[in-house]
C-alpha cells in the first residue's frame, strides 16, 4: 500500500504528531510505502530543530529525522504555513525540507490512501 501522511498539529501540544510518527514507522516496517509526510498548519513546528524537550521525554523532531534517515521518507514542511510561524531553512531540522502545498496534492494523487493526523 502507498500511503500519504498529513500532520496538522505541532509536537507535544497534541498527540497528532506522535500518532502520525508511530503509524508511519509501523507502515514502513511492515513493508508499505510512504510517499511523503506533509506538515501543515502548526504541524510545521515538527521541523524546528530548536525544539529541546526534557531528556526523559521523547524528542519528536529527532524521531522524525531519524525515520527519514533510516527509510528515506520525504518530510515536507509547507512553506506558507512555515513562514508565518518562523520556520525557515536556518532552523530546519535534519531530514526535513520546505516546499509548497502542491506537494500535498501531488502526494495525495500518487498515494493509495492519504491519512490525516490532526485535532
Amino acid at each position: 500500500m502507498k500511503f500519504g501522511i498529513v500532520v496538522n498539529e505541532g509536537p507535544f501540544t497534541h498527540q497528532a504528531s506522535d500518532s502520525a510518527y508511530l503509524f508511519t514507522k509501523a507502515a514502513l516496517e511492515k513493508g508499505h510505502q510512504v510517499m511523503r509526510v506533509f506538515f501543515y498548519y502548526d504541524g510545521v513546528n515538527n521541523g524546528n530543530k530548536l525544539s529541546s524537550p526534557q531528556a526523559d521525554d521523547r524528542n519528536l523532531v529527532k524521531l522524525w529525522g531519524d525515520l527519514a534517515a533510516e527509510h528515506k521518507v520525504d518530510l515536507v514542511i509547507c512553506v506558507a504555513a512555515a513562514l508565518r510561524r518562523g520556520i525557515k531553512d536556518e532552523i530546519l531540522a535534519e531530514g526535513f525540507r520546505i516546499s509548497g502545498l502542491g506537494q500535498l496534492i501531488e502526494a495525495s494523487m500518487a498515494a493509495d490512501r492519504t491519512l490525516v493526523f490532526g485535532d
Binding site: M35, Q103, A107, M109
Partner: peptide
C-alpha cells in the same frame, strides 16, 4: 531548500475526488 525534482511522482492522468 532541498531539490524537489528528485521527489516528483508520476501523476500523469490521475484524477481523484478531493473533499
Amino acid at each position: 531548500m532541498a531539490d524537489d525534482s528528485r521527489r516528483e511522482f508520476d501523476t500523469e492522468g490521475v484524477k481523484k475526488r478531493f473533499m
